[in-house]
Design a protein around this nucleic acid. Structure first.
Lengths: 244, 244
DNA sequence: GTCTATAACGAGATAGAC
DNA sequence: GTCTATCTCGTTATAGAC
């Protein structure tokens, strides 16, 4: 039975490590105040955070392609430009590293959904959401892929977060969509299935990028293709919910 | 560097093994004639095939959840009810087993798309396609998940098949869709992006089943939920392409 | 904090008896 | 064809010097 996991993030149980919970690369840098928890200050805090960031970024890239078990600590260390034992100084073990990468992930993934607000025009909100998610697929394919990998494997970790954070958010946003339907501003649709469709279609371009590339010869990195994709998805979905 | 793979299926290079290319469980049992290649006949052919099938089925279940590296040969053997060394008698090594599982996969995955025919009413063809793919997601979530896993990881194996078989099929079916658009039977849509949307939305219910379950409390196994899902997807997509 | 061993283990694969 | 025993290797994680 691969990968049985109990503690969410072992920081709290460790006596020799006390670093901030960090961010993967340039994403999810919310809660900037926690830099203060670092033991050493000035001149030192920055480099330490840099090293952790580098490791986390390298880990994200590898985990998202090869999975937890398909990636060795050695590979992550090499990619991050540190020695393996040095890496294991910053992260008590491989699983903790993995968990830390995942923690940052959810924030990135959820961000676009929070913008969904009943105040605005449904057409605009949905169109913007599609664009935002496709931007994530373009700029953070690794995050999208790792999220997908984790869900496929039963989300041993994200499960709790899914049940709490995401579930709450989905209930809230479903209500928004339902309100639009009730007000006649949207054709009758099941809000939850609409959200699934939005997630699926937009993430597809990150998760199945290889297939997309094989079939179209294109990537979202190509601005023209990106715009064409945004337009295609927006057109079908918006028409599908009766606006435009 | 995990998992570098050259030969498609090593059967041809092996002198001690010569079994049929097999089918995973009850799926993809096309080409039934190849049973004849088995060395021993009568009374023996069936059990041998059974054992291979059992192993392949067990392997599919595990690989699709934990990936190639997250699954040990021991686990597959245990689940199939054979010893590890016995398994390695039937499959020269772990990778060959993996490849054999994948081979059968593509057939299952492609089947529904072949039904796409210009002769028929677009509304009906698309509606039927959505239903077929959702049936696959319901009845073969393992296949869908493993396919997804493989694509995410760059499809080191399926890449060739994607470039050949799938690409050809997509060109053909895109032409069908384009013809409908040109004939004014469908609102203007990019055929390729429409196909992506169909794949993404229908497979989502298999690949992200955990998330769907967490958010709705339902599975496609529930007939009522299944029908509601079919209806939801069909409604939005069909309206999205201007029919219905 | 960072490094060089090295311990400890799991897992893939083989040898060879039956 | 099937089994037990074993070889071998990659990998995680630790010990301990600097």
């Amino acid at each position: 039975m691969p990968f049985s996991m109990q503690p969410a993030c072992q920081f709290d149980h460790m006596d020799k490590h006390q670093f901030p919970r960090s961010a993967v690369g340039d994403l999810a840098s919310q809660s900037p105040g926690n830099e203060l928890h670092v033991v050493t200050r000035k001149k030192k805090a920055a480099p330490v955070a840099d090293k952790r960031s580098a490791v986390l970024q390298a880990a994200l890239g590898l985990f998202s392609r090869y999975g937890l078990h398909g990636t060795s600590v050695d590979q992550v260390a090499a990619r991050a430009g540190v020695s393996k034992s040095n890496l294991l100084y910053y992260f008590a073990n491989k699983e903790e590293l993995y968990v830390c990468v995942l923690r940052d992930l959810l924030g990135v993934w959820l961000a676009p959904l929070r913008a969904f607000s009943a105040e605005q025009d449904p057409q605009r909100v949905i169109a913007d959401y599609i664009r935002s998610k496709l931007e994530v697929s373009r700029d953070n394919p690794d995050a999208s892929r790792l999220f997908c990998l984790e869900i496929i494997q039963g989300a041993p970790l994200l499960r709790d977060e899914l049940d709490r954070e995401l579930h709450e958010l989905v209930i809230e946003k479903s209500a928004v969509i339902q309100a639009w339907v009730d007000a006649g501003r949207l054709a009758p649709v099941d809000p939850t299935h609409l959200l699934f469709m939005l997630w699926a279609t937009t993430q597809h371009y990150a998760d199945f990028a290889v297939q997309v590339q094989a079939l179209t010869g294109q990537t979202l990195a190509n601005p023209a293709f990106f715009e064409r994709t945004v337009a295609s998805v927006q057109t079908v979905v918006l028409r599908g919910v009766g606006v435009r």
